[in-house]
């Protein structure tokens, strides 16, 4: 396991490259980078090219009422000590983000799932259709205001 000095080194590395453009924070598990929907793609590109982050493990969305938060968890294969979580907030009334499929193809179905269950659109996605629910389903069940009863 990456010990504390490795973690510090990894964190400093991220800071050196991204500090002047993005807000960066740290907890015992992850380095958190905050981007907005305009800077998301260039951030992902930088992570992949300059930090060797070639593995987008997980992406999902959280409903916070007025806004949604997208979160992306990224690592490198083979492991280089980096554990990154990229976060982007988007307003509920304009729930749209650029798709990261051009940089990380693995986002394809995962973004479709977020669209399906949370109702966030990804511009530039090659196939923005539902993945789990039927095509004629109405609504996005993981939204907090989704009506559960009949």
């Amino acid at each position: 396991m990456a010990n504390n000095t490795d973690r510090d080194k990894a964190f400093n590395n991220v800071r050196a490259i991204l500090e002047d453009k993005y807000e960066i924070a740290n907890d015992p598990f992850f380095t958190y980078i905050t981007a907005n929907s305009d800077s998301l793609l260039s951030l992902m590109q930088t992570l992949k090219e300059q930090l060797g982050i070639n593995y987008l493990s997980n992406l999902t969305a959280v409903d916070y009422g007025e806004e949604f938060e997208m979160v992306y968890h990224l690592y490198a294969i083979p492991d280089n000590g980096q554990k990154l979580a990229v976060k982007t907030k988007i307003p509920r009334n304009r729930a749209e983000l650029p798709s990261v499929t051009s940089i990380y193809p693995t986002a394809d179905w995962q973004e479709r799932e977020v669209y399906d269950l949370m109702g966030i659109l990804f511009s530039g996605h090659p196939n923005m259709i539902r993945v789990l629910l039927p095509d004629d389903f109405v609504g996005h069940p993981l939204r907090k205001d989704f009506k559960k009863e009949g």
């Binding site: 997980n58 999902t60 959280v62 394809d108 179905w109 995962q110």
Partner: peptide
């Protein structure tokens, strides 16, 4: 508040 499962079967099937 929120639980998300990153399912390997889902991603691998891609």
């Amino acid at each position: 508040y929120r639980v998300h499962v990153r399912a390997p079967s889902f991603v691998n099937l891609m």
